[in-house]
């Protein structure tokens, strides 16, 4: 029984590592690659959960994660970035070092919170939940320490990955919810895509600072 949990923890841990990887990438192309890696790991984790918990419906979720977030969205974003010819470097709000330190603190917070909830050492299921929470928080952090609209989209979808990981960890979560989560990601992608194109049309850049200047934001 233990190896079942060991493997699922391994996969969740790999996802967490890719989350950190997302934080320190310098170029948009490598951000997208790291995200694709995270999504593929998620697909593996979900597939493993489907096999080990004997829930074949989770395979569908794994398939969705693999095709949509592992392949289609990264490829589409790669092409968008290339076609738009936007400069490929990621504009940072805070330095990589600080972002990683904050990320480390957030991971610790997630762990401490789950230990608090569980009153003591973590069970296997709670450990999985702690990893998922850390991934969600890191996705959020990614959204606020990067200024580029594409990296914000990626941060958002990384949060969704964390959510799906948490959902598969919990037993008895029906497929309906996962499908709706997947759809919400798709819709978010649409919204962000439209958003990106609109900004590009108007300002010849997708740096969201331009949007702030348009609104007369003081800094």
């Amino acid at each position: 029984m233990n190896e079942v949990y060991d493997i699922s923890h391994l996969l969740a841990g790999v996802m967490l590592v890719t989350s950190f990887a997302l934080l320190y990438q310098e170029r948009i192309a490598s951000v997208l690659n790291a995200f694709a890696a995270q999504s593929i790991t998620l697909a593996l984790a979900v597939a493993w959960a489907a096999w080990s918990q004997d829930r074949p419906d989770l395979f569908i979720t794994a398939l969705i994660a693999l095709t949509l977030k592992g392949i289609i969205i990264p490829v589409a974003l790669h092409r968008t970035v290339t076609r738009l010819g936007i400069h490929r470097e990621v504009e940072k709000v805070v330095g990589v070092g600080i972002a990683l330190m904050v990320g480390l603190a957030l991971t610790g917070l997630a762990q401490a919170l789950l230990m608090k909830v569980a009153h003591g050492p973590l069970s296997y299921a709670s450990e999985q939940l702690a990893l998922a929470l850390a991934i969600i928080l890191l996705g959020f952090l990614m959204m606020i320490v990067r200024r580029n609209a594409v990296t914000q989209v990626v941060g958002f979808m990384s949060m969704e990955n964390g959510l799906i990981l948490a959902a598969t960890g919990a037993r008895g979560m029906p497929l309906v919810v996962e499908v709706s989560v997947a759809f919400s990601v798709l819709i978010a992608l649409f919204v962000f895509a439209v958003f990106v194109f609109r900004i590009r049309e108007r300002f010849d850049t997708i740096d969201i600072e331009a949007l702030d200047r348009m609104r007369g934001d003081r800094r």
Binding site: V93, L106, L109, L137, F140, L141, M143, I144, R147, Q152, I208, L211, D212, R215, G216, D217
Partner: peptide, 16 residues
């Protein structure tokens, strides 16, 4: 009149 990113920072800070 904050930027989207600043609203996100506020939400994130509240959550943390």
């Amino acid at each position: 009149f904050l930027s989207i990113r600043r609203y996100l920072v506020l939400m994130f800070a509240a959550l943390v």
